[in-house]
């Protein structure tokens, strides 16, 4: 099997996997970073959202061949101690129910705030609507994003 090198959470990582392996399974099975979740496998639920550079991307829809040489951040690397403004706001607003979608949601929100520190409600809705929360925590999530935005001002 070929070897690919990519940067994950600021560290270079080498993996031996098939070239068509989605980044999602590289993270979960090869690198044991299970915070990135499998939900749909086709880029429609957002559970596997990670950052490529500063941009939110679906790890299930990027092959390791495409990912090689690039730099990614997962939920495990978003902050040193769970203290990213989104993570703090998420806890304060008691957003999570089952919590399975939340790492992907937080990565999506963090990318939005990096791009737009003070998003409107419409911008929040637009950024977040690629993602599914089957528990329906959307209203608390929106509040948490607004709280994180306030904290960043």
């Amino acid at each position: 099997m070929p070897t690919f090198t990519l940067t994950v959470n600021r560290e270079p990582r080498k993996v031996d996997v098939e070239p068509d392996t989605p980044l999602l399974w590289v993270l979960r099975d090869a690198l044991q970073l299970t915070g990135t979740k499998y939900g749909c496998g086709v880029g429609v639920c957002g559970a596997c959202t990670v950052h490529e550079g500063k941009e939110a991307v679906h790890a299930c829809s990027i092959s390791v061949r495409e990912a090689a040489g690039k730099s990614f951040t997962t939920i495990e690397g978003l902050s040193a101690a769970g203290d990213h403004p989104c993570q703090k706001a998420w806890v304060a607003e008691d957003v999570a129910q089952c919590g399975y979608c939340q790492p992907g949601m937080i990565m999506t929100a963090a990318a939005l705030l990096a791009r737009k520190p003070d998003p409107t409600e419409a911008e929040i809705n637009q950024a977040m609507s690629g993602s599914v929360c089957r528990c329906g925590t959307y209203n608390r999530m929106r509040k948490a994003i607004q709280r994180a935005a306030r904290a960043g001002r």
Partner: peptide, 8 residues
């Protein structure tokens, strides 16, 4: 469980 969830 909130803090563990938000850190993956």
């Amino acid at each position: 469980d909130g803090p563990a969830i938000v850190q993956g």
